[in-house]
Design a protein around this nucleic acid. Structure first.
Length: 656
DNA sequence: GAGTTTGAAACT
DNA sequence: CAGTTTCAAACTC
């Protein structure tokens, strides 16, 4: 593979034909041009998988999308080259551009389906290019959970794009769609971003009006994505048509089974700009010039010397060799470390583009999804709830009449009530890099309201976080997987109840709490104990291990009654119902079909018959991945209550 | 708010 | 894999 010669000041991509095309792309002009049957209304826009998938992370998709999830089965609207021609750009049609691009010598190399696009654009180890620093971090760590991702192949998240894993690397689409309401706000002069840092974060991204949809599709995306889209078009209704067509002779191409397309659909945080703009074009110019951020990028890359403190013991991440000491004292909010290598020699490229949102998911997502699921999604959290970056309360002030906003508000309200808000952690010793840390375990960054000490679970330590995460996952691939699974699609019926069929995947091990306190993960999640539990004296209100039921179906034991009475009393006093409040803190409904195969789990492999009982005679757990999901009792579809990072992220799947 | 209890996570 | 230790949340006072 020839590494493109790079102009030190220019991204290695940019002299490529596709970028010539793309640079002429973003006309930032109102659409409403051609009307085509295919639309991408906010309601139909599927929530994308998270950027950094861990097993549970990219599960969260709206059901609507799931129905046609199989990309190969996705009905693809017949779009002719004329349709493609409707993608108007400043310099001709997109179809023209694509055609032109793919007739180029370079495109000939990569146009074949299945060829990763990253190869010619990804720096090799040590080849820390401008581009490397420029692309969103999410692009670098997109391997987890890709359908074609070989977990055994990748050893280090930092090598996501740098090492051998890149053989499996397709690309991650990063874009976010601006829905009609949001666009209206944009046009009214509201800022797309809520901070300067966010602005700079998305510099280089461009606005793209998908006029073909005939609807309201306005996307923000980045060049890497566009390049990927054109080289490796997905067959996916969530993608703009440009991504579905146009590869060869303007004809649809085969779906790449392992390509992962993550749409960063952010929840926009609209704030009135200081200087209201008359049109969004002006406002969005910042995103249309790819080099516009070079200066800031250079600034960002200023090396921040690690504080030398020889007196303190080195803190090495077990197993990783990561020297946290190198980061000690780097409590930078704005600074970006440019330690190309940590003491362990692992190249580190800290994000310059990643958002302040969250680290694993594609942020976006959550709010959008939650909306689609309506407020009936129990316990779901809008990622924004915890995220200043995605706090959309301001935007909510406007457009209050929008059904979407209303639903959003309802969800938030419910969420806050049912989850007790996003209570921060109080970790003292774990640096918030272990599962002890609830924030970390949820895939969230620690927040302002956390009272943790020596916290590394911050955006600026994203690399460490990912490294640690990988390490944990290497020990237990399902460490970040949802703990609660359910077998029936009752989610959404009653937002106040966890589905009765939901169970803790691994079960609890309670000895003294008799599963009646929140020490018990089952109880805390609001689910009954199951055979997977090794609890003693189980009296779980939500269902006991012995199968006796819950929630008043059977006579409640005294303790249970007391517990309920307390809860009821609390409710009467205006306190949250303790039982309800003890429901899952961060669980949300996920369709099991959406579980990635990141850990080698395929739906077909999860048949009930392959499920092995998970308790050993001595009570220790025997983990069987195939048992992680309870077979649906209603044929096929399974639902999972997923531990969700409530984020801000900008967030990604795959996870951050 | 401090101290205790608890069980998951991490470690050996 | 089993026993032990560490950890932080939940709980109690």
């Amino acid at each position: 593979m020839d590494t493109p010669k790079t102009n030190p000041s220019i991204s290695p991509f940019e002299d490529e034909p596709v970028f010539i095309f793309m640079n002429g792309l973003s006309p930032i002009k109102p659409m409403k041009s051609a009307q085509i049957s295919q639309t991408f209304s906010s309601g139909s826009f599927p929530s994308p998988p998270r950027v950094f998938t861990s097993p549970h992370l990219n599960c969260f998709k709206e059901p609507r999308f799931l129905r046609s999830h199989n990309p190969l089965a996705t009905s693809r609207p017949e779009v002719s080259s004329e349709d493609l021609n409707k993608f108007q750009t400043n310099e001709g049609t997109i179809a023209d551009s694509i055609h032109s691009y793919h007739n180029s010598s370079e495109s000939q190399e990569n146009a074949l389906v299945g060829i990763p696009v990253a190869d010619d654009s990804v720096p090799l180890p040590g080849q820390h290019t401008e581009f490397s620093a420029e692309i969103p971090q999410a692009l670098k760590y997109n391997n987890y959970g890709n359908p074609g991702y070989d977990p055994g192949h990748e050893t280090n998240p930092l090598l996501g794009l740098h090492g051998e894993a890149k053989a499996n690397f397709a690309y991650v689409q990063e874009s976010f769609r601006i829905d009609p309401n949001e666009r209206e706000l944009l046009n009214q002069g509201f800022s797309l971003f809520d901070s300067k840092s966010q602005e700079s974060e998305f510099k280089g991204w461009r606005r793209w009006d998908n006029s073909v949809s005939g609807d309201t599709d306005l996307f923000f995306t980045n060049n890497a994505t566009l390049k990927g889209l054109m080289q490796n078009p997905p067959v996916d209704r969530s993608m703009p048509l440009i991504s579905q067509y146009g590869l060869k002779d303007n004809r649809p191409v085969e779906q790449k089974p392992y390509a992962e397309f993550v749409t960063r659909r952010r929840y926009l945080n609209f704030k009135k700009s200081n200087l209201p703009r008359k049109n969004s074009d002006d406002h969005l110019k910042l995103g249309s010039v790819i080099h516009s951020d070079e200066k800031s990028l250079a600034n960002e890359k200023q090396l921040v010397p690690a504080k030398s403190n020889s007196s303190s013991p080195k803190c090495i991440l077990p197993g990783s060799g990561l020297d946290l000491e190198a980061f000690e004292g780097l409590k930078l909010d704005k600074k970006v470390i440019n330690n190309d290598k940590l003491s362990c020699g692992i190249p580190v490229s800290l994000p310059s583009c990643t958002s302040s949102l969250q680290f694993f998911r594609s942020h976006e997502h959550q709010g959008a999804l939650a909306m689609e699921l309506d407020s009936s999604v129990f316990g779901s959290q809008l990622a924004e709830d915890c995220s200043p970056a995605s706090d959309s309360t301001i935007g909510e002030d406007f457009n209050q009449n929008s059904p979407r906003k209303k639903r959003q508000a309802r969800l938030r309200k419910f969420d806050a009530a049912e989850t007790g808000g996003c209570k921060g952690c109080k970790c003292k010793k774990s640096k918030c890099l272990k599962l002890y840390c609830e924030c970390f375990a949820r895939g969230e960054y620690c927040k302002d309201d956390c009272s943790c000490q020596n916290c590394y679970n911050k955006h600026i330590h994203q690399d460490i976080i990912l490294q640690t995460r990988k390490q944990i996952e290497s020990r237990n691939p399902l460490a970040f997987a949802p703990k609660i699974v359910t077998s029936s699609p009752e989610i959404g019926i009653d937002p106040n109840k966890t589905p009765a069929s939901a169970r803790h995947k691994r079960g609890c091990n309670c000895k003294k709490s008799v599963c009646l306190k929140k020490y018990c993960e089952c109880f805390q999640a609001g689910v009954g104990c199951s055979e997977s539990c090794r609890c003693e004296g189980c009296k779980n209100t939500f269902g006991r291990k012995d199968g006796s039921n819950s929630m008043g179906v059977e006579a409640e034991p005294e303790e249970e009654t007391e517990e309920r009475e307390k809860a009821d009393a609390g409710q009467k006093l205006g306190k949250p119902n303790t039982l309800l409040s003890q429901q899952p803190k961060h669980f949300q409904a996920v369709l099991e079909e959406e579980m990635p195969d990141a850990v080698g789990l395929r739906a077909s492999d999860r048949s009930p018959t392959t499920c092995i009982k998970t308790s050993s005679p001595n009570g220790k757990r025997i983990s069987s991945p195939s048992c992680d999901l309870i077979p649906s009792s209603r044929g096929g579809r399974k639902l999972i209550l997923q531990s969700i990072p409530s984020f801000p992220f900008l967030t990604d799947h795959d996870n951050p």
